[in-house]
């Protein structure tokens, strides 16, 4: 009887927690343990690959909310949310004219937890706004100035990639909104100087006398859509770019962007 009592008293949450923290498994995963002392708080930042994105110590002024607005971090978080929800959506969505629209409706009507597409869509819109605000903040604090010139350039490309990601995703529901937004958008490629068949200079490029080099089946828009109109091939191309091509490039540049923040003097502040 008293043995049982001992056992029960040993099962109190506090003691259980202690036991877990002493176990070999826990200590193999979390080397430092609970960061209760300043020393451990530093070690935890150094020992964790994700937290290692940050330095051990930061300027107090740099992390004031009214200074940084947190927009860069929010953008990165939204990218992660979009990657995750996008991956889930790919399990149900088929990028063909026959199924695309039906699958999108099914995602709302039939698939459990029918807000996955909503999170993806609204998150994408939010990300566009947060990227703009991040750029706005960086400009207003003059944080593009030396030594951060290069990282500002990387940021501009990331801004463009964000817009392109959103643009390619716009076509995938294959509804009227998608179709015509992409028709209007992609038709601008038709007017690319020299490379679009209705662009200035395109009809100067001819083979011999009168075989045009740039026609509606050989211009920039054709390469973008894989056809002369927004159809099956365009849907597939935008799908591949949206799900694989652009996220890979964006992820690669984000790694450069974050690395350069650390290299170029950490979060910005007066020199």
């Amino acid at each position: 009887m008293s043995q049982l009592k001992d056992l029960l008293s040993n099962l109190s949450p506090a003691k259980l927690g202690e036991a877990i923290q002493k176990s070999q498994i826990y200590r193999s995963v979390f080397r430092v343990g609970v960061p209760v002392s300043d020393r451990k708080r530093m070690l935890v930042m150094l020992g964790n690959v994700f937290l290692h994105l940050h330095p051990v110590k930061v300027r107090k002024s740099g992390i004031r909310l009214r200074f940084t607005w947190c927009m860069g971090g929010i953008t990165f978080f939204l990218f992660l949310v979009l990657t995750f929800t996008g991956l889930l959506l790919m399990f149900y969505y088929r990028p063909t004219i026959e199924y695309a629209y039906v699958d999108i409706i099914d995602l709302r009507e039939q698939v459990p937890l029918g807000i996955m597409r909503e999170i993806h869509r609204w998150g994408a819109h939010a990300m566009v706004i947060s990227v703009w605000l991040h750029m706005f903040r960086v400009f207003m604090t003059g944080s593009y100035k030396p030594p951060r010139e290069f990282n500002w350039g990387v940021g501009v490309i990331l801004l463009v990639l964000t817009l392109l990601l959103s643009f390619t995703g716009y076509l995938l529901p294959w509804d009227q909104l998608a179709m015509w937004a992409i028709t209007v958008g992609s038709n601008m490629a038709r007017a690319t100087p020299f490379a679009g068949y209705e662009g200035p200079g395109a009809n100067l490029l001819t083979l011999g006398e009168n075989i045009p080099l740039i026609s509606s089946t050989s211009d920039a828009r054709f390469a973008l859509l894989g056809g002369t109109r927004v159809g099956e091939m365009a849907l597939l191309r935008f799908y591949v770019l949206h799900c694989v091509g652009l996220p890979l490039v964006a992820g690669f540049l984000m790694a450069v962007h974050f690395w350069r923040i650390r290299r170029d003097g950490g979060i910005s502040g007066p020199l």
Partner: peptide, 18 residues
């Protein structure tokens, strides 16, 4: 900003929790 530039705080918990 300069008033606090010299002040450095630990990233854990100040930034991580924000």
């Amino acid at each position: 900003e300069k008033e606090e530039t010299a002040d450095k705080v630990l990233t854990w918990p100040d930034l991580v929790y924000t």
